[in-house]
Simulated scan of single mutants.
Amino acid sequence: MSSSNPTPLDLTLDGGTLTARLVDIPSVSGDEQALADAIETALRGYPHLSVDRHGNNVVARTNLGRAERVVLAGHLDTVPIADNLPSWVEGDLLHGCGTTDMKSGVAVQLRLAATVPEPNRDLTFVFYDCEEVEASRNGLGHLAKDHPEWLAGDFAVLMEPSGGMVEGGCQGTLRAQVRLTGVRAHSARSWLGDNAIHHAAEVLTRLENYQPRRVEIDGLEYREGLNAVRIDGGVAGNVIPDECVVTVNFRYAPDRDEVDAEKHVREVFDGFELTVTDFAVGALPGLSQPAAQAFLEATGGQARAKFGWTDVARFSALGVPAVNYGPGDPNLAHKREEYCSLSAIAEVEDRMRAWLTS
Protein backbone atom coordinates (compact mmCIF):
# COMPACT_ATOMS: atom_id res chain seq x y z
CA MET A 1 0.00 0.00 0.00
CA SER A 2 3.03 2.28 0.31
CA SER A 3 3.21 5.15 -2.17
CA SER A 4 6.39 5.52 -4.27
CA ASN A 5 7.30 8.93 -2.83
CA PRO A 6 6.45 9.08 0.86
CA THR A 7 7.08 12.38 2.61
CA PRO A 8 10.43 12.12 4.41
CA LEU A 9 10.47 12.57 8.17
CA ASP A 10 13.52 13.39 10.28
CA LEU A 11 12.95 11.71 13.66
CA THR A 12 15.95 13.48 15.18
CA LEU A 13 14.08 16.81 15.15
CA ASP A 14 12.90 18.05 18.54
CA GLY A 15 9.42 16.94 19.54
CA GLY A 16 7.69 20.23 18.79
CA THR A 17 9.21 20.57 15.32
CA LEU A 18 8.44 16.95 14.53
CA THR A 19 4.83 17.49 15.65
CA ALA A 20 4.57 20.39 13.20
CA ARG A 21 5.88 18.17 10.39
CA LEU A 22 3.26 15.54 11.21
CA VAL A 23 0.47 18.12 11.41
CA ASP A 24 1.43 19.47 7.98
CA ILE A 25 0.79 16.04 6.42
CA PRO A 26 -3.04 16.04 6.30
CA SER A 27 -4.50 12.76 7.56
CA VAL A 28 -8.25 13.11 7.98
CA SER A 29 -9.83 9.74 8.80
CA GLY A 30 -9.66 7.53 5.72
CA ASP A 31 -6.84 9.54 4.16
CA GLU A 32 -3.87 8.48 6.31
CA GLN A 33 -1.76 6.74 3.63
CA ALA A 34 0.73 9.59 3.06
CA LEU A 35 1.43 9.88 6.78
CA ALA A 36 1.60 6.11 7.27
CA ASP A 37 4.05 5.90 4.33
CA ALA A 38 6.24 8.61 5.83
CA ILE A 39 6.30 6.96 9.26
CA GLU A 40 6.98 3.50 7.86
CA THR A 41 9.87 4.81 5.74
CA ALA A 42 11.40 6.72 8.66
CA LEU A 43 11.18 3.78 11.08
CA ARG A 44 12.71 1.33 8.60
CA GLY A 45 15.86 3.43 8.75
CA TYR A 46 16.59 2.26 12.30
CA PRO A 47 18.22 -1.19 12.53
CA HIS A 48 17.17 -1.75 16.15
CA LEU A 49 13.50 -1.84 15.07
CA SER A 50 11.53 -4.49 13.20
CA VAL A 51 8.71 -2.89 11.23
CA ASP A 52 5.44 -4.39 9.99
CA ARG A 53 2.50 -2.86 8.18
CA HIS A 54 -1.14 -3.84 7.78
CA GLY A 55 -3.18 -1.43 5.68
CA ASN A 56 -2.35 2.05 6.99
CA ASN A 57 -1.29 0.67 10.36
CA VAL A 58 2.43 0.60 11.14
CA VAL A 59 3.96 -1.42 14.00
CA ALA A 60 7.63 -1.20 15.06
CA ARG A 61 9.23 -3.33 17.78
CA THR A 62 12.45 -3.82 19.66
CA ASN A 63 13.43 -7.43 20.31
CA LEU A 64 16.03 -7.26 23.07
CA GLY A 65 14.75 -10.12 25.21
CA ARG A 66 13.70 -7.85 28.07
CA ALA A 67 11.54 -9.24 30.86
CA GLU A 68 8.71 -6.82 30.08
CA ARG A 69 7.15 -5.46 26.89
CA VAL A 70 5.35 -2.12 26.78
CA VAL A 71 3.11 -1.01 23.91
CA LEU A 72 2.99 2.69 22.99
CA ALA A 73 0.08 3.42 20.66
CA GLY A 74 -1.34 6.43 18.85
CA HIS A 75 -3.74 7.09 16.00
CA LEU A 76 -2.69 8.91 12.84
CA ASP A 77 -6.03 10.38 11.80
CA THR A 78 -7.64 13.70 12.62
CA VAL A 79 -11.10 15.14 12.38
CA PRO A 80 -11.81 17.22 9.23
CA ILE A 81 -9.56 20.23 8.74
CA ALA A 82 -11.18 23.52 9.80
CA ASP A 83 -9.04 26.14 8.04
CA ASN A 84 -6.28 25.30 10.55
CA LEU A 85 -3.49 24.01 8.29
CA PRO A 86 -0.59 24.47 7.81
CA SER A 87 0.55 24.63 11.43
CA TRP A 88 1.92 27.82 12.98
CA VAL A 89 3.69 28.76 16.20
CA GLU A 90 2.85 31.58 18.61
CA GLY A 91 5.19 31.66 21.57
CA ASP A 92 5.00 28.26 23.27
CA LEU A 93 1.91 27.14 21.36
CA LEU A 94 1.81 25.08 18.18
CA HIS A 95 -1.51 25.62 16.40
CA GLY A 96 -3.14 23.39 13.81
CA CYS A 97 -5.42 20.43 13.13
CA GLY A 98 -4.27 17.41 15.14
CA THR A 99 -1.73 19.20 17.32
CA THR A 100 -3.49 18.02 20.47
CA ASP A 101 -5.41 15.03 19.12
CA MET A 102 -2.98 13.48 18.71
CA LYS A 103 0.06 14.20 16.56
CA SER A 104 1.98 15.57 19.53
CA GLY A 105 1.65 12.15 21.16
CA VAL A 106 2.66 10.44 17.90
CA ALA A 107 5.72 12.69 17.72
CA VAL A 108 6.76 11.55 21.21
CA GLN A 109 6.35 7.92 20.12
CA LEU A 110 8.52 8.49 17.05
CA ARG A 111 11.20 10.33 19.01
CA LEU A 112 11.42 7.47 21.51
CA ALA A 113 11.44 4.85 18.76
CA ALA A 114 14.35 6.57 17.04
CA THR A 115 16.45 7.72 19.98
CA VAL A 116 16.09 4.97 22.62
CA PRO A 117 17.73 1.98 20.90
CA GLU A 118 18.26 -0.01 24.13
CA PRO A 119 15.30 0.62 26.41
CA ASN A 120 15.00 -1.13 29.77
CA ARG A 121 11.79 -2.77 28.51
CA ASP A 122 11.08 -4.12 25.04
CA LEU A 123 8.88 -1.67 23.20
CA THR A 124 6.13 -1.95 20.58
CA PHE A 125 5.15 1.24 18.77
CA VAL A 126 1.71 1.15 17.14
CA PHE A 127 0.51 3.82 14.69
CA TYR A 128 -3.02 3.19 13.46
CA ASP A 129 -5.75 4.74 11.33
CA CYS A 130 -9.45 5.65 11.56
CA GLU A 131 -9.81 6.20 15.32
CA GLU A 132 -12.04 9.25 14.89
CA VAL A 133 -14.77 7.44 12.94
CA GLU A 134 -17.01 4.41 13.41
CA ALA A 135 -15.54 1.50 15.33
CA SER A 136 -15.73 -0.89 12.36
CA ARG A 137 -12.99 1.12 10.60
CA ASN A 138 -10.66 1.44 13.59
CA GLY A 139 -7.14 0.32 12.65
CA LEU A 140 -6.30 -0.90 16.14
CA GLY A 141 -9.38 -3.09 15.97
CA HIS A 142 -8.18 -4.49 12.64
CA LEU A 143 -4.77 -5.27 14.16
CA ALA A 144 -6.41 -6.93 17.17
CA LYS A 145 -8.43 -9.12 14.80
CA ASP A 146 -5.79 -9.93 12.17
CA HIS A 147 -2.48 -9.68 14.06
CA PRO A 148 -3.14 -9.84 17.82
CA GLU A 149 0.44 -11.03 18.39
CA TRP A 150 1.67 -7.59 17.25
CA LEU A 151 -0.18 -6.00 20.18
CA ALA A 152 0.97 -8.43 22.87
CA GLY A 153 2.48 -6.79 25.93
CA ASP A 154 2.52 -6.45 29.70
CA PHE A 155 1.35 -2.83 29.72
CA ALA A 156 0.18 -0.25 27.17
CA VAL A 157 0.16 3.53 26.99
CA LEU A 158 -2.27 5.27 24.65
CA MET A 159 -0.62 8.59 23.79
CA GLU A 160 -4.03 10.29 23.74
CA PRO A 161 -4.15 13.91 24.97
CA SER A 162 -4.33 13.92 28.75
CA GLY A 163 -2.68 17.19 29.73
CA GLY A 164 0.48 15.36 30.74
CA MET A 165 -1.34 13.45 33.49
CA VAL A 166 -2.07 9.74 33.59
CA GLU A 167 -5.74 9.08 32.87
CA GLY A 168 -6.84 5.63 33.97
CA GLY A 169 -9.24 3.41 32.07
CA CYS A 170 -12.08 4.95 30.10
CA GLN A 171 -15.84 5.29 30.16
CA GLY A 172 -18.13 3.08 28.19
CA THR A 173 -20.60 4.64 25.78
CA LEU A 174 -24.06 3.57 24.66
CA ARG A 175 -26.33 5.31 22.17
CA ALA A 176 -30.02 4.55 21.87
CA GLN A 177 -33.10 5.91 20.14
CA VAL A 178 -36.34 6.52 22.03
CA ARG A 179 -39.22 6.47 19.53
CA LEU A 180 -42.46 8.35 20.18
CA THR A 181 -45.55 7.82 18.00
CA GLY A 182 -48.73 9.75 17.37
CA VAL A 183 -51.35 10.38 14.70
CA ARG A 184 -50.75 12.60 11.68
CA ALA A 185 -53.23 15.39 10.96
CA HIS A 186 -53.54 18.87 9.43
CA SER A 187 -52.23 21.44 11.91
CA ALA A 188 -55.36 23.53 11.34
CA ARG A 189 -57.34 20.61 12.79
CA SER A 190 -54.81 19.47 15.36
CA TRP A 191 -57.48 17.91 17.59
CA LEU A 192 -57.80 15.18 14.97
CA GLY A 193 -54.17 14.16 15.46
CA ASP A 194 -51.79 13.21 18.24
CA ASN A 195 -48.50 15.13 18.26
CA ALA A 196 -45.55 12.75 18.61
CA ILE A 197 -43.11 15.59 19.29
CA HIS A 198 -45.15 16.64 22.33
CA HIS A 199 -44.73 13.13 23.73
CA ALA A 200 -40.97 13.75 23.81
CA ALA A 201 -41.58 16.09 26.75
CA GLU A 202 -41.74 13.16 29.16
CA VAL A 203 -38.46 11.77 27.80
CA LEU A 204 -36.77 15.15 28.26
CA THR A 205 -38.23 15.51 31.74
CA ARG A 206 -36.76 12.18 32.78
CA LEU A 207 -33.40 13.29 31.43
CA GLU A 208 -33.60 16.65 33.19
CA ASN A 209 -34.36 14.92 36.50
CA TYR A 210 -31.77 12.19 36.02
CA GLN A 211 -29.16 11.96 38.78
CA PRO A 212 -25.92 10.63 37.32
CA ARG A 213 -23.88 8.22 39.36
CA ARG A 214 -20.35 8.87 40.61
CA VAL A 215 -18.19 5.86 41.37
CA GLU A 216 -14.62 5.48 42.63
CA ILE A 217 -12.41 2.77 41.11
CA ASP A 218 -8.72 2.39 42.03
CA GLY A 219 -8.92 5.80 43.69
CA LEU A 220 -10.26 7.51 40.53
CA GLU A 221 -13.73 9.04 40.39
CA TYR A 222 -15.77 8.38 37.25
CA ARG A 223 -18.84 10.52 36.55
CA GLU A 224 -21.64 9.07 34.47
CA GLY A 225 -23.95 11.04 32.21
CA LEU A 226 -27.16 10.39 30.30
CA ASN A 227 -28.11 13.04 27.77
CA ALA A 228 -30.22 13.73 24.72
CA VAL A 229 -27.91 14.39 21.78
CA ARG A 230 -30.42 14.63 18.91
CA ILE A 231 -34.14 14.99 18.25
CA ASP A 232 -35.74 14.13 14.91
CA GLY A 233 -39.38 14.80 14.11
CA GLY A 234 -41.73 16.72 11.90
CA VAL A 235 -43.19 16.27 8.45
CA ALA A 236 -44.06 19.74 7.19
CA GLY A 237 -44.95 23.15 8.53
CA ASN A 238 -48.66 22.36 8.47
CA VAL A 239 -48.70 18.73 9.64
CA ILE A 240 -49.05 17.25 13.11
CA PRO A 241 -46.16 14.75 13.24
CA ASP A 242 -46.83 11.09 13.91
CA GLU A 243 -43.25 10.21 14.88
CA CYS A 244 -40.42 11.70 16.92
CA VAL A 245 -37.09 10.08 17.81
CA VAL A 246 -34.89 11.24 20.70
CA THR A 247 -31.31 9.94 20.53
CA VAL A 248 -29.64 9.57 23.92
CA ASN A 249 -26.02 8.89 24.87
CA PHE A 250 -25.09 7.14 28.09
CA ARG A 251 -21.47 7.56 29.25
CA TYR A 252 -20.97 5.01 31.99
CA ALA A 253 -18.30 4.06 34.50
CA PRO A 254 -16.13 1.03 33.62
CA ASP A 255 -17.51 -1.08 36.45
CA ARG A 256 -20.61 -1.59 34.27
CA ASP A 257 -20.62 -4.04 31.39
CA GLU A 258 -22.70 -3.77 28.23
CA VAL A 259 -25.62 -5.72 29.69
CA ASP A 260 -25.82 -3.61 32.84
CA ALA A 261 -25.51 -0.36 30.89
CA GLU A 262 -28.38 -1.27 28.57
CA LYS A 263 -30.51 -2.50 31.48
CA HIS A 264 -30.03 0.82 33.25
CA VAL A 265 -31.01 2.91 30.22
CA ARG A 266 -34.12 0.78 29.64
CA GLU A 267 -35.11 1.28 33.28
CA VAL A 268 -34.81 5.06 32.91
CA PHE A 269 -37.06 5.01 29.85
CA ASP A 270 -39.44 2.31 31.04
CA GLY A 271 -42.66 2.45 29.04
CA PHE A 272 -41.04 3.83 25.88
CA GLU A 273 -39.87 2.04 22.74
CA LEU A 274 -36.06 2.04 22.87
CA THR A 275 -33.49 0.69 20.40
CA VAL A 276 -29.76 0.52 21.17
CA THR A 277 -27.84 1.69 18.09
CA ASP A 278 -24.21 1.71 19.23
CA PHE A 279 -22.06 0.80 22.22
CA ALA A 280 -18.46 0.44 23.28
CA VAL A 281 -17.49 -1.03 26.63
CA GLY A 282 -15.17 0.87 28.96
CA ALA A 283 -11.93 -0.19 30.58
CA LEU A 284 -11.00 -0.46 34.24
CA PRO A 285 -8.01 1.71 35.21
CA GLY A 286 -5.76 -1.18 36.21
CA LEU A 287 -3.54 1.10 38.27
CA SER A 288 -2.88 -1.67 40.78
CA GLN A 289 -0.73 -3.49 38.19
CA PRO A 290 3.01 -3.22 38.95
CA ALA A 291 3.81 -1.87 35.47
CA ALA A 292 1.11 0.78 35.81
CA GLN A 293 2.38 1.76 39.25
CA ALA A 294 5.92 2.15 37.92
CA PHE A 295 4.69 4.29 35.05
CA LEU A 296 2.56 6.42 37.36
CA GLU A 297 5.52 7.09 39.64
CA ALA A 298 7.74 7.97 36.68
CA THR A 299 5.25 10.49 35.32
CA GLY A 300 4.53 12.45 38.47
CA GLY A 301 2.48 10.12 40.65
CA GLN A 302 -0.91 11.67 39.85
CA ALA A 303 -3.80 10.11 37.98
CA ARG A 304 -7.40 10.91 37.17
CA ALA A 305 -10.28 9.14 35.50
CA LYS A 306 -10.62 9.29 31.72
CA PHE A 307 -13.88 10.96 30.72
CA GLY A 308 -14.59 9.57 27.30
CA TRP A 309 -13.90 6.34 25.41
CA THR A 310 -10.44 5.52 24.11
CA ASP A 311 -8.69 2.49 22.71
CA VAL A 312 -7.43 1.50 26.15
CA ALA A 313 -10.61 -0.56 26.08
CA ARG A 314 -9.25 -2.61 23.17
CA PHE A 315 -6.05 -3.38 25.07
CA SER A 316 -8.08 -4.22 28.16
CA ALA A 317 -10.07 -6.73 26.09
CA LEU A 318 -6.76 -8.29 25.02
CA GLY A 319 -5.71 -8.64 28.65
CA VAL A 320 -3.17 -5.80 28.49
CA PRO A 321 -3.59 -3.14 31.22
CA ALA A 322 -3.47 0.32 29.66
CA VAL A 323 -3.58 4.01 30.52
CA ASN A 324 -3.87 7.27 28.59
CA TYR A 325 -0.93 9.67 28.70
CA GLY A 326 -0.09 12.43 26.25
CA PRO A 327 0.94 16.09 26.05
CA GLY A 328 -2.20 17.66 24.56
CA ASP A 329 -5.10 19.25 26.43
CA PRO A 330 -8.14 17.00 25.84
CA ASN A 331 -10.44 20.01 26.10
CA LEU A 332 -8.94 21.35 22.85
CA ALA A 333 -9.48 18.17 20.84
CA HIS A 334 -11.50 18.65 17.64
CA LYS A 335 -11.67 22.44 18.05
CA ARG A 336 -10.99 24.84 15.19
CA GLU A 337 -8.55 26.67 17.51
CA GLU A 338 -6.74 23.44 18.49
CA TYR A 339 -3.17 23.86 19.75
CA CYS A 340 -0.56 22.14 21.90
CA SER A 341 2.13 23.51 24.18
CA LEU A 342 5.66 22.91 22.89
CA SER A 343 7.00 22.70 26.43
CA ALA A 344 4.37 20.07 27.29
CA ILE A 345 5.55 17.91 24.38
CA ALA A 346 9.13 18.12 25.64
CA GLU A 347 8.09 17.36 29.23
CA VAL A 348 6.12 14.22 28.30
CA GLU A 349 8.99 12.98 26.15
CA ASP A 350 11.52 13.60 28.94
CA ARG A 351 9.43 11.75 31.50
CA MET A 352 8.88 8.75 29.25
CA ARG A 353 12.53 8.68 28.24
CA ALA A 354 13.54 8.60 31.90
CA TRP A 355 11.05 5.77 32.56
CA LEU A 356 12.46 3.75 29.66
CA THR A 357 16.14 4.29 30.40
CA SER A 358 16.53 4.55 34.18
Rank of each mutant, 00 (worst) to 15 (best):
E160L: 03
V235I: 15
D129C: 12
H54C: 13
V229G: 10
L318R: 09
F315T: 05
R69F: 05
R21W: 05
T357K: 06
K263P: 00
A67S: 15
D14I: 06
T100M: 04
L9Y: 05
E216P: 04
V265G: 02
H48C: 10
V23F: 01
P212D: 11
D129E: 15
R206Y: 10
H142K: 11
D270E: 15
E224G: 12
I39M: 14
G169D: 07
W355M: 12
E32M: 09
P330R: 03
V106Q: 02
A305F: 03
L11E: 06
G96H: 04
I240W: 08
T277Q: 10
H54V: 10
A294P: 02
K335I: 00
E258F: 01
E338R: 09
W355H: 14
P8K: 05
D350Q: 14
E224F: 07
E134C: 02
G98C: 04
H198K: 04
N195L: 05
F125N: 05
A60T: 10
A73G: 05
C244A: 14
T62V: 08
E160R: 01
E267F: 06
S162F: 03
A292H: 03
G30S: 09
G286V: 09
E347A: 14
L356Y: 07
E132G: 01
A107P: 08
V276N: 07
N238V: 13
E40S: 13
L93D: 15
N195Y: 09
P161M: 00
S27V: 05
V239Q: 09
A294H: 10
V281Q: 11
A292S: 15
V108S: 00
V235H: 07
